[in-house]
Design a protein around this nucleic acid. Structure first.
Length: 596
DNA sequence: TGCGACACATATCG
DNA sequence: TCGATATGTGTCGC
């Protein structure tokens, strides 16, 4: 990847319009890992060498929940939603894993194939809402998480760099224009992308690790909302990530897996992404029969754009390990995304419409398809986003033409959010049941006070949703002999090394210089620990820059400036109260924002 | 067993 | 080279 993250030019380029502070901050929109790999920066060479590849959890194909048509109703638009997860995740025992304490970030965008959104990024259109045509004023993206089977929302939080000392927010919906492109490219400018930075899971998955109890999984979901002229925000498309394991704070719970991780990672790093196999890839993979883990198949098409990918699959609850099929969604882009018109290709009943040819990703790394590397986040560029690839410059995100431009009409996260309570997916308990569209239709239908997303009481059964027997190492682990190049991020080895002296540490031991603390962290990663500066190319939903924020009242404006200029959220550049983006950053001092 | 809080270590930037 | 910053993670106490 990637010039957009790595090019020094980016630092001084047009995307830096908002000033150094913010530009620097914003640069973290893309994986620092990637940056470290690609920037050629002298400081990170070693890491770059170590972490020569970049992988992240894939996303399943997006679902479009409603028809969207052109204003003249002559054309039906297909909304393509894309997302990628940057940093934070590594493969452990074939599971995409992260530490709850560590940050990850998610970038998302959408586009409309066949529509030149560079010419009309606002995409005037009508939403066919159960037969009623509603004018869409804009689109918004939000992220959330859930237990794999979808009955339980999992909170995500964003931090400021101050971490514990700073405020936390839940990811907010962010306006977005069509035409985004997550793929790295020479353009380097991808203003129509929303990036949520410094995201953490509020809670860890259950049964992480060594015991062969049912491993719980989470999934991140990315939701695309259409805001109608009445102000209603309707979920029109969404997509789910691969099942994710989130490790909590008890190292002993999973420390024994470190070896596995390391082995797997090392093997993968050495081998690359060649022969994919993954959880369930092999018939010998010990998944319970009742989980219906799909059989391996070579028929799965990575070309998710294709409608012929044999992609029958049950909807989210059964997506993934429990799915009757395992539609690997991977465009050859950083996005790990693909979109399908569910109307054509997908069945919501996980017991119906299956094709013999249906397939699933043979590996958490790679689909068992003709494009074994396609999922590799930054390494392969997809070709589906001509508009975005057109390198919309930051300027293209100028206020003009965008609904909220100049208006800054409401503030995300504001308690006085004028029209729609800012209820977030994670607050609303998605119901990604296989009943499919009808049910989905209702989950976000409107935020106009209906609040049908009541806080369901979560029963035990629900809690257990998303559990499966953990398979520490698949017999057909793709990591062994895989050329994928999986490299785990820096991980906690506290337990594993508890009996070892700090000196064992590959890095981090300063016990000899007066510290009483025995640091035993081992850096195995190529992760850059600091958000890279100068290279942000997408709108972000950052937690607050700290020093910038405090030291310079203009920082707020700068943020907005970047967002407005790069992100195209026009209007928000006027400050925190502008249009939400600014407010999405977490003020270290809430009062400060109130006063600004 | 998991979490909040605190603190240390280290990479990166200016 | 150094200070500031960001972030991974060790540790304690609950």
């Amino acid at each position: 990847m990637d010039e957009q993250t790595g090019s020094p030019d980016m630092a001084t380029g047009s995307d830096r319009i908002a000033g150094d502070n913010i530009a620097a901050y914003a640069s973290s929109a893309h994986s620092p890992t990637s940056e470290s790999m690609m920037s050629g920066g002298s400081r990170n060479r070693k890491r770059s060498e170590v972490f020569a590849t970049h992988e992240s959890p894939y996303f399943f194909p997006a679902h479009q929940l409603y028809n969207v048509v052109s204003m003249d109703r002559s054309t039906s638009y297909t909304l393509k939603l894309a997302a990628k997860i940057d940093r934070g995740f590594f493969l452990a025992s074939n599971d995409w894993t992260c530490y709850r304490r560590n940050y990850f970030q998610i970038s998302a965008c959408f586009f409309i194939p066949g529509l030149d959104t560079t010419q009309q990024p606002e995409v005037p259109c009508l939403l066919d809402y159960n037969g009623e045509l509603l004018q869409v004023n804009r689109f918004l993206i939000c992220i959330g998480a859930q237990i794999q089977n979808g009955d339980k929302a999992i909170e995500l939080v964003q931090h400021t760099p101050k971490r514990d000392k700073g405020p936390q927010i839940t990811p907010k919906r962010m306006p977005v224009r069509a035409g985004g492109d997550l793929s790295p490219g020479p353009t380097g400018l991808q203003p129509y992308v929303v990036t949520y930075e410094r995201v953490q899971f509020k809670t860890a998955t259950a049964n992480n690790g060594k015991r062969r109890a049912a491993q719980q999984y989470y999934q991140v979901h990315v939701d695309l909302f259409a805001e109608t002229d009445t102000g209603a925000q309707i979920l029109v498309a969404n997509l789910l990530s691969a099942p994710l394991v989130v490790r909590g704070r008890s190292p002993g719970h999973y420390a024994d897996n470190e070896d596995d991780d390391a082995v797997a990672a090392a093997a993968a790093a050495a081998a690359g992404a060649g022969a994919p196999s993954g959880p369930g890839t092999s018939s010998s993979t010990p998944y319970p029969a009742d989980e219906r883990y799909p059989p391996a198949s070579s028929s799965y098409r990575n070309d998710s754009i294709s409608s012929s990918n044999g992609g029958d699959y049950s909807y989210y609850p059964n997506y993934g390990y429990n799915s009757s099929s395992y539609p690997y969604q991977s465009l050859g882009s950083a996005s790990h995304m693909a979109t399908q018109d569910y109307r054509e290709d997908y069945h919501y009943n996980n017991n119906s419409g299956r094709h013999d040819s249906e397939s699933y990703p043979a590996s958490p790394l790679s689909p068992s398809g003709p494009h074994p590397h396609a999922y590799m986040t930054p390494q392969v560029q997809h070709g589906f986003s001509p508009a975005a690839s057109g390198a919309a410059s930051p300027d293209m995100y100028s206020p003009s033409g965008f609904p909220e431009n100049g208006g800054g009409h409401y503030q995300y996260g504001s308690p006085t959010y004028p029209q729609y309570p800012q209820q977030h997916p994670q607050d609303q308990h998605h119901h990604y049941h296989q009943e499919g569209q009808q049910q989905l239709n209702g989950q976000y239908d409107s935020y106009n006070g209906g609040q049908q997303y009541d806080q369901e009481t979560q029963d035990h059964a629900t809690q257990l949703a998303g559990l499966r027997i953990h398979s520490p190492v698949s017999p057909s682990s793709p990591l062994i002999g895989s050329p994928t190049g999986v490299t785990p991020r820096r991980q906690s080895f506290s337990s594993a090394l508890s009996s070892k002296k700090a000196g064992v540490g590959i890095a981090g031991d300063r016990s000899s210089i007066g510290s009483t603390r025995k640091t035993r962290s081992i850096s195995m990663s190529g992760i850059t620990k600091r958000a890279p500066s100068k290279t942000r190319t997408s709108r972000t939903v950052p937690a607050t820059p700290t020093k910038e924020h405090h030291s310079n009242g203009g920082a707020l404006g700068s943020i907005g400036g970047v967002l407005g200029g790069i992100g195209g959220l026009g209007g928000i550049g006027h400050g925190v109260k502008g249009l939400g983006i600014s407010s999405d950053r977490i003020p270290e001092n809430p009062m400060e924002d109130q006063q600004s």
